[in-house]
Design a protein around this nucleic acid. Structure first.
Length: 243
DNA sequence: CAATCGTCCTGCGGGC
DNA sequence: TGCCCGCAGGACGATT
């Protein structure tokens, strides 16, 4: 559930709170995000990295509860609590994060991720269906089930479409939708569907803008939203607005 | 190469 | 009321 906008919200808030603080005597110098991974860089060259998977939460200066799996204490008495109901998430201290940089596809909001680049990437993936492809972290980083649904609604493209069937204009629509939806979701501090909270324990506001994900009727035309299974995942789309 | 399935784990809601 | 079942969906490895 925490996808790019949620992890980025955590990153942005966390950097305000913990840069300059010390973790076991080592200064925090940077808080970064790559794909859905959050990285806290320390002055000794190591990084504390997290993946929240489905139900992970990182709460600043919070009290540990039933689902707390780790507590990181700073030298000034503040802390960072890692909660994770379903225990899919993980954290580790690593000496080098370059393997993370290489592992994933381009960052969708990076300036280097251009329409031309996207078109080139798509040309290698002819037979793939567009929704699972958008969720493939090695293809493009940070997009999960919620935002792939919302992006394809915005673009007016069915999640079932195969890449080879997309016209250039349709690729352009998807490209624009990726940038637009992710930026707007970041602005609204992400989507709190079930478990997601920001570092202050607040819900993200983007759910109110969801147009297909977990919706019953199409925001635009009122048609019943279709729910499908795609590669074991649920997908939501309007059969009338998304071709 | 693409797609599917099982796996990790827990909570919740539907159906009876 | 209670019990069982299926679903939620990120990522990975094995298999088709």
């Amino acid at each position: 559930m925490p996808e790019l906008p949620e992890v980025d919200t955590i990153r942005r808030e966390l950097e305000k709170e913990i840069i300059g603080k010390k973790l076991k005597g080592v200064k925090v110098i940077k808080v970064r995000r790559r794909a859905k991974i959050l990285m806290i860089d320390l002055a000794n060259g190591s990084s504390l990295i997290f993946h929240l998977k489905l139900t992970g939460q990182l709460l600043f200066n919070s009290k540990p509860g039933k689902w707390s799996r780790a507590i990181f204490k700073f030298d000034d008495g503040t802390n960072l609590v890692f909660n994770d109901t379903r225990k899919f998430g993980w954290w580790k201290m690593v000496k080098d994060t370059s393997f993370i940089e290489k592992k994933f596809g381009p960052e969708p909001l990076d300036k280097n991720f251009t329409l031309k680049k996207f078109e080139e990437m798509l040309s290698q993936k002819g037979k793939s269906r567009i929704k699972p492809l958008l969720m493939d972290q090695t293809f493009i980083a940070g997009i999960g089930n919620i935002y792939s649904d919302e992006i394809l609604f915005e673009a007016g493209i069915s999640p079932l479409r195969r890449v080879e069937s997309l016209k250039f204009e349709e690729m352009k629509k998807i490209f624009k939708a990726i940038k637009k939806i992710l930026k707007k979701a970041i602005k609204n501090r992400g989507s709190s569907v079930e478990y997601y909270l920001d570092v202050y324990g607040r819900k993200g506001d983007y759910v109110r803008y969801h147009k297909v994900y977990h919706q019953k009727k199409c925001f635009r035309c009122g048609t019943k939203i279709e729910k499908i299974k795609l590669g074991g995942r649920s997908g939501h789309f309007c059969p009338k607005c998304q071709i």
